[in-house]
Design a protein around this nucleic acid. Structure first.
Lengths: 348, 348
DNA sequence: TTGTACGCGTTATCAT
DNA sequence: ATGATAACGCGTACAA
């Protein structure tokens, strides 16, 4: 049994850690020699001194101070990931892939979350500004335009993923949202659905707008007139997706199909459908944005629009680390048909 | 010539960012004055100079170099979160709360992932060692004992969450896994189930072991003899949860209930059940470890063991930032009964 | 109240 | 091949 507490582990922990001078002294050489041993390519060292130095390093368990190094040379590249909500499987996957990509560049990732709250976002940006972060990958809330500009002016390269915002043109990696909205609607139209409800993100966000636009285009191409009353644009946080579902179901001429284009509202919306006893796939066909393992497990399995998250992450990291760009990268999403979408009931 | 040389040629955009000396010169004061203005409490400044300094700071958009600051004073506290898999909703929630708690301490979080791979973990730890990280919160894979020790010896405070590992005693915040396993089994026993299948994590992990132990204890207390053939301990990654499900179903005397105590294998296991046409809640009662919004959406809604993730995160961050501790904190988990568990079929 | 000057730990330059 | 030393940018005794 080991007792808790354990302060008997010596004061050596507390003593100042060894500096390059300590090592030099212990090895009987100069600090320059030590530096040369530790930074290969900076000069030649005899194997005898190399050995003594390495021994001293090992002995004193010496680690160069990052701060001193950065002060002398340039600062190491740093990357922050400012996400709306890590709890959302879509963003969790994004985080996973971004960390993975960054790792291959030998860069670590600082994770921050905004919870879709511009105030929290502002605080995060201030922190980043102070810490002189090199690059930021973010899913912006929509506000803080000046703050973003400050950040860029301070020399940080800013990359937005998934969304764009108004008033600030950053490098962006986004899904072809217009096409995605179009694809989802088209899929349903081909199944014979005429009235399609839509739950999308707020119209202040690019994802919110574009997916709705694509949806409308598909309808128009199909000879239908988009009905604004079928489109509900609701915030990312909260339960308004569910309320929108109820509103749609409670109309006189309820839709036979539903597109939930707001990632964050999928669960809430589906829950409400279940609560209302709607038989998904029969009474109502449903397409949902963003794939995750649970969508296939759902009864019935959900037809989803799957975004190529790995690709998004790779582009984002590349753009972020290459300091100079203001590029716009778009990736295509795929519609994955599953059991939640079926033929429309015969028209009455 | 008056003034600094060659500033006429538009090189200012490219030129190194302003230092405290530049500000001092621009404001017509000393560097000390600038520092005093920027670090309140370090000395008194006349309001007139303060103004001029602030103006100059604004004008040159001056930001103190973190490296220089840290070199002079102590290093800022730093925190790394080394997770097995951010994609797992349980860990995603953990990440969310850890970031949140850290924020309240004005500390940012470096996110790293191991994908349950000791090799990747080793690389991460090496990186952390080099960067002299202050604190680490981790879900260890089980290996790399020496590496963890190196890290601690380097002065990093290490906190394990969710799991403990053998050979290295770190501060740990874990769920009462033994009790949780006990609770899940007890719930099923009270519903009349006698043969209960278990899918747990590997026996090399504390969560894997303890939940199984608790399960066995419940059985024994109930007058039953634990049947080892009903317990499958499978890795966190891969699809072996599904295989274990099949194995359990294919025995001569298949269980009437199932506990999936391996968070990472829940989806895979449930998918296999669906594939096999098992009617969850009727043919087979199912308890699953770790709650997330989708479990309630499942048909039928899944009975879950819910861990108090927020509490775990809070404790973890507190322990991590308080450098001295080797404490063990345990939190209780709750069983949330839902529709996936029902009365056992009458014994034949 | 203000300014001068030193040191933090490293690396690079220049002698030797 | 090796050693002395000057920066790097900041904070702060200490002196004025």
């Amino acid at each position: 049994m080991v007792g808790a507490g354990g302060s008997q582990y010596g004061r050596q922990q507390v003593s100042r850690s060894a500096t390059i001078r300590d090592v030099a002294r212990a090895a009987g050489v100069s600090t320059a020699a030590v530096s040369r041993v530790l930074n290969p390519g900076s000069g030649a060292v005899s194997s005898s001194t190399r050995e003594r130095v390495l021994a001293a390093v090992e002995d004193l368990s010496y680690r160069p101070r990052t701060a001193a190094r950065e002060l002398r040379g340039g600062a190491r590249p740093t990357l922050a990931l400012v996400l709306a909500d890590v709890t959302n499987p879509f963003f969790a996957q994004l985080a996973d892939r971004v960390v993975w990509e960054a790792r291959s560049h030998d860069v670590t990732v600082q994770l921050m979350t905004t919870r879709e709250d511009p105030t929290l976002e502002a605080e995060s940006l201030t922190a980043l500004l102070q810490r002189r972060i090199g690059s930021v990958i973010a899913t912006p809330t929509g506000g803080n335009v000046e703050r973003w500009e400050d950040l860029r002016e301070a020399g940080t390269s800013v990359v937005f993923v998934d969304r764009r915002i108004e008033g600030f043109t950053a490098a962006t990696v986004s899904t072809a949202d217009e096409e995605s909205g179009h694809a989802a609607a088209q899929h349903l139209l081909r199944l014979g659905h005429q009235r399609i409800g839509v739950i999308a993100g707020p119209s202040t966000t690019s994802t919110g707008r574009d997916r709705v636009t694509g949806h409308a285009r598909a309808l128009t191409e199909h000879g239908l007139t988009p009905d604004p009353s079928l489109v509900h644009q609701v915030p990312f946080r909260g339960d308004q997706g569910a309320d929108a579902v109820s509103a749609l179901l409670d109309t006189e001429d309820p839709p036979t199909a539903l597109v939930v284009a707001n990632t964050a509202q999928v669960v809430s919306s589906m829950r409400r459908l279940a609560l209302r006893g709607v038989r998904t796939g029969q009474d109502l066909s449903v397409v949902v944005f963003d794939d995750n393992p649970w969508t296939e497990l759902h009864t019935p399995a959900l037809t989803v629009v799957r975004q190529p998250i790995g690709l998004v992450a790779r582009h984002a990291v590349t753009l972020a680390l290459r300091q100079d760009a203001r590029d716009q990268v778009r990736v295509r999403a795929d519609l994955v048909p599953r059991a939640s979408t079926g033929l429309a009931p015969a028209a009455s």
